[in-house]
Design a protein around this nucleic acid. Structure first.
Lengths: 225, 225
DNA sequence: TGAATGCTTCGTTCGGGAACGAAGCGTCGC
DNA sequence: GCGACGCTTCGTTCCCGAACGAAGCATTCA
């Protein structure tokens, strides 16, 4: 017996529809209660409870008890990465899906994804702020200035031991967006300046009017809506 | 409905034990026939047939008909990567597994994995042939010479558009081994010089006496066996 | 040509696991 | 304190999908 059983059990854990729905919800990077997850997954509280227990014991989720609530979140970054990687394997639909809110702009654990995430990365590459290098990016000197002006904490991102500016395949666009420490810093900036705002407990994010202006001015993005 | 259903179906596809076993076998990077896969997965030919059909239509495998045989292989590199990523999520066993042949040295699609794969990467980092940079590595000038002397086709690897020298988490060692174009080139060299030999249709690889000598001399590796 | 091999399709059986309601336990508010 | 709420455990039902043998269709040998 080799690792096949390990792979099988892990994939099966993720592969049950209700559990996959919960994991997907948690990809927003936030912590949600058992009841919230039950509702979103469309199952009873009882059912959700056993699913969540299995996800925790399978080390995909961590729990934190707070009063009578229990908050679940993805155990760590690597879980989020694996889920995204897995989702990117899904064959693209034959007919093109309309650009709903989720596909337009969403968080992917700690960075920006969706049409907007891809567009931002494209712009950064096009303006030579970032140079693609395989699955990574190198930050140019000019780019460093640009990002600093935007208010991105470049030093903290560069100092982190994790991957700096990873290209992460977007499941809806099937083109890369920006992940890694820099991806996180960039999202943090956009949220901090309220160019983007998270929807309550959803993965989708909204672009504010200020954000629309900033993205157009600073990154040359033509937002389709 | 968002991507949860896509994620669920993909994970469920991988998560069935017989299918996971087949995928794991194919992680060797080779093509195997339906009957071979049936045997290794421990199911009847009939059962294997339907599993394989589903894996193909799920775009995880590709088929090539040759006479009355049908050869299956992983569809592409990204499938192998996703599988490895997923396997690395499996919680480590509480008691340490003995170092069987598969854990000792095996191929992971197109590069070297297992205890040996990790040891090789460690050595390359320790001798500053490679400098870790997040999930990537940079090749030093000195390292370039060293690898060239070993017979590694560094130019081809550097010219490739894929990731150059990615750190890939080893599922058995839980520490990184070397993947990417350079990982592939390195394995190719070791196989070409017959330092390592593949077992027939297995993922495990054997170290030859010449290989043992070369690895000790060139990389300073103390092989435990 | 006929027999053996490799693989798929069909029809059926069967078991694991996901689902729910009810009941139980702890926590919070009135 | 009591009731409402959040969550889990228990017991039961039920269904999906994996399994197999048998039959059928190719391909390759003799």
């Amino acid at each position: 017996m080799d690792d096949a059983s390990g792979l099988a059990s892990m994939a099966a854990l993720i592969g049950e529809p209700a559990r996959a729905a919960m994991l997907t919800e948690l990809l927003s990077g936030r912590a949600l209660t058992a009841t919230e997850l039950a509702t979103r997954a469309g199952v009873s509280a009882a059912t959700a409870s056993v699913h969540l227990a299995r996800l925790v014991s399978g080390r995909l989720l961590s729990v934190e008890a707070q009063g009578r609530h229990r908050y679940f979140r993805l155990r760590d970054r690597s879980v989020a990465r694996s889920l995204e990687t897995l989702a990117s394997l899904v064959p693209p639909p034959l007919v093109k899906e309309p650009l709903d809110d989720l596909r337009y702009a969403r968080t992917c654990y700690d960075h920006l994804a969706g049409w907007l995430g891809v567009a931002v990365r494209d712009s950064l590459v096009k303006t030579r702020v970032l140079l693609p290098e395989g699955a990574e990016h190198r930050l140019t000197a000019k780019g460093e200035d640009r990002l600093r002006t935007l208010g991105v904490d470049v030093d903290r991102a560069a100092g982190s031991r994790r991957s700096f500016a990873r290209a992460c395949l977007d499941w809806s666009e099937r083109r890369p967006h920006l992940a890694g420490a820099l991806g996180e810093a960039l999202l943090a900036t956009c949220l901090g300046k309220r160019w983007l705002v998270r929807r309550d407990g959803e993965r989708a994010v909204d672009v504010t009017t200020a954000g629309r202006r900033a993205l157009a001015g600073q990154l040359g993005l033509e937002l389709p809506r």
